[in-house]
Amino acid sequence: MTVKAMIDEWYPVGLLSQLDLKGRKTALMDEPIDVALDADGNARVTGGNGRTLPVRVRYGHVWASLGEPKKELFDIPEADQPGRRFVDVGVVRVRCSPLRAVENFLDIAHFPFVHTDILGAEPHTEVQNYKVEIREEEDEVWATQVKFYQPQAAKSASGGITTEYMYRVPAPTCSVLYKTCPPRPGEWDVITLFVQPLAEDLCDVWPWMALFDDESSMTDLIHFQQTIFLQDRSILENQIPRLLPLDPGMEIPTRADLTSVAYRRWLKRHNYTYGAQLVAQ
């Protein structure tokens, strides 16, 4: 485990809409932190030794870093696009590695078995070839042309369709998913997974969405996403080992897992190993 390389990254630590003066005690990579509003109404995050941490407020969430971020918080251009509805899904705690939570989000092959009759269903289990790359300029992992048959792809979908996905990993514990938007062909719905690493084997997950959907109520949208994520939670808490194995040999990837292969390679390259297991045990 190395904290070092990941310490300068940005992490979600709370929902802006739920902050108050009293504050919220939480943790970031084993360090207790406090997230609160100050007298001027600005978000303030305090580290374990009382120091004030760098803060950003974006995508409905408060972001903080324990170190000195060398990069600005990653951009999601769709967050400023008119006509989208922004959905704060709320926090869910999971007893798993933050990296395992992200990797599961990048996976489509589990849809028929874990999100049965919503995001997938037998016999439509085949994963077609798709494209994966590490984009050097942005330093992000991208998977594109990911296609999967889905019985109910979104709250706004009725009946089965083949959905197209694009995945993006802009930070070690964050992923952005672009997905065919049933009511608006040509546009992409944006669904994100922001993961706050509390410890190497414990995380708070903050899903967030920017959707084109004028029909569904906000509560329906929240419940749809909570349903999906809670179906994953019981998987994530039962993977052995808890930490994500970065060395080959411990787990067996196939062609369907190329996004995960690239993600693991990218983590290793940057020494993003908080929540990872390096030596096969």
Partner: peptide
């Protein structure tokens, strides 16, 4: 443990 992704 499934050798694919470690699921029980």
């Amino acid at each position: 443990r499934c050798p694919h992704r470690g699921m029980r």
